[in-house]
């Protein structure tokens, strides 16, 4: 009872990276709280994934299997997760800030009347004293996220409602085997009792999901373009530089919103979090929305015509100038000096 739940997302018979990242974080939080880490695994033919969940620290796996449960649909998965929450009363429930988690989380939080914080960048256990009532709370989950376009960082708590729910984007937390694997004790869920016919009224009639083609998360060198690239045409310079240096292309949200490139390349709070050895930010001003997703890069080079741009403050090198002039010069210098 009062343990920590992680909702496990699967696609194509594999556990999503974000779920393993959350287990890693969940293990740490559960150790701090002195509670168990429990995975909720809902799908069809997913039992073989249990050992992997244990490796990442799951003490227990709630397993709900059935043909009707795959692919993911909102209502049955929400009904099962709510059923388990009512039965087990976990203190915390975490899920990925993916299309699935962002569809499921709010539905469950509304049904449980518990708060949900979206897109957390950090989760920490801490105490709280209510300023008005003087009531003290031990060991709450601090749900920390940038807000208001990334101009502020807010710490959100749910003092009185359980479970404390949060979603986290892929790549924000690190994925590591647990120091000591969890027991991975499997408990089969009698999900038919938790669902009704009405939970199956939405039918999936067609589905095309592709393996992800763009993988900027694991790239060693990233050339990221921002709104300052000016146009979709100019943005191609980022691809030229990335190709020359053997890297991948990323983008700020402003560049994606402006249609310079596709969403899969978006880096930041509402995109992917990356930690390459070299990050070249081209025409990116550096709102925290973006820097939250790249500030741990080993080396940052910022190219910007604004000497006051916030990105310059976290950069190791800043090149002040027009990206359309700087990038071709970098390509030329690389060809001249590399063997």
């Amino acid at each position: 009872m009062n343990n920590l739940f992680v909702y496990i997302e699967t696609e194509g018979g594999k556990v999503a990276d974000v779920s393993l990242e959350l287990l890693t974080k969940g293990r740490e939080l559960a150790d701090t709280l002195g509670c168990k880490l429990e995975a909720v695994l809902i799908g069809d033919g997913v039992a073989h994934l249990v050992p992997e969940l244990a490796q990442y620290g799951a003490d227990k796996v709630w397993l709900a299997e059935g043909k009707e449960l795959s692919p993911y649909r909102t209502l049955p998965h929400a009904a099962i997760l709510c059923g388990l929450i009512e039965q087990e009363k976990p203190q915390i429930c975490l899920m990925g800030a993916t299309p699935v988690g962002r569809d499921l989380g709010p539905r469950v939080s509304s049904a449980m009347h518990s708060g949900l914080t979206a897109d957390c960048t950090s989760l920490v256990i801490g105490d709280h004293k209510d300023a008005k009532t003087g009531k003290e709370y031990d060991q709450l989950l601090y749900q920390i996220r940038p807000a208001f376009g990334g101009n502020i960082i807010a710490t959100i708590i749910n003092p009185d409602c359980r479970p404390q729910m949060a979603t986290v984007r892929e790549g924000v937390m690190k994925k590591e085997f647990a120091a000591k694997p969890g027991a991975g004790e499997v408990v089969k869920v009698d999900w038919q009792k938790m669902t009704s016919e009405a939970d199956f009224v939405v039918k999936i009639i067609e589905r095309h999901i592709e393996e992800r083609k763009i993988n900027i998360k694991n790239a060693g060198i990233i050339v990221a373009g921002g709104y300052g690239m000016g146009s979709r045409e100019n943005f191609k310079l980022c691809f030229d530089l990335a190709e020359t240096l053997g890297g991948e292309v990323g983008a700020s949200r402003a560049a994606v919103d402006a249609g310079f490139t596709e969403h899969a390349r978006q880096i930041g709070q509402t995109g992917v979090t990356v930690r390459p050895k070299l990050y070249i930010a081209c025409g990116i001003s550096g709102q925290i929305q973006h820097t939250a997703g790249m500030e741990d890069s080993a080396m940052i080079i910022a190219i910007n015509n604004d000497p006051e741009a916030p990105i310059n403050r976290i950069a190791d090198y800043t090149i002040i100038g027009d990206v359309n002039e700087v990038i071709p010069r970098m390509i030329k210098a690389y060809h001249k000096n590399s063997k």
């Binding site: 914080t117 601090y142 807000a147 502020i152 960082i153 710490t155 959100i156």
Partner: peptide, 10 residues
């Protein structure tokens, strides 16, 4: 249910 505990400037 959610309360803002703290707001920090970036």
């Amino acid at each position: 249910p959610t309360k803002v505990k703290k707001i920090e400037n970036v």
